[in-house]
Amino acid sequence: MSSYSILFVCMGNICRSPTAHGVFRQMVTDQGLAQWVNIDSAGTHNYHPGSPADARSQHHALKRGYDLSDLRARQITDSDFETYDLILAMDWDNLALIQAACPDAHQGKVRRLTEFCQRQDSPVVPDPYYCGDQGFEQVLDLVEDACEGLIKHVKGHAK
Rank of each mutant, 00 (worst) to 15 (best):
M90I: 05
A89N: 03
F116K: 07
T77V: 12
W92N: 12
D104N: 03
M90H: 02
P123Y: 00
E82L: 12
W92A: 10
I87W: 02
T83Q: 09
A96H: 09
D70Q: 11
V110A: 01
D121V: 15
L86S: 04
M90C: 13
L97H: 13
V124A: 00
E82A: 13
R119E: 09
D80Y: 01
C117F: 02
D70H: 11
H106D: 06
Q107N: 07
L113Y: 07
L71W: 08
E82P: 00
R112T: 11
D80C: 11
I98A: 01
A89R: 04
Q107E: 14
T77R: 15
L95T: 08
R119T: 14
D93Y: 10
P128V: 10
L86M: 08
Q120D: 01
H106E: 11
P103E: 13
F81Y: 15
W92D: 12
D91G: 08
L95F: 15
L97S: 13
A101P: 02
Y84S: 08
G108V: 03
E115I: 02
D127H: 02
Q120R: 14
N94P: 13
I76A: 04
P103R: 12
L71R: 08
A100T: 08
M90G: 06
T83H: 11
D127P: 06
M90R: 01
Y84N: 10
S122G: 01
L113P: 02
K109G: 07
P126Q: 01
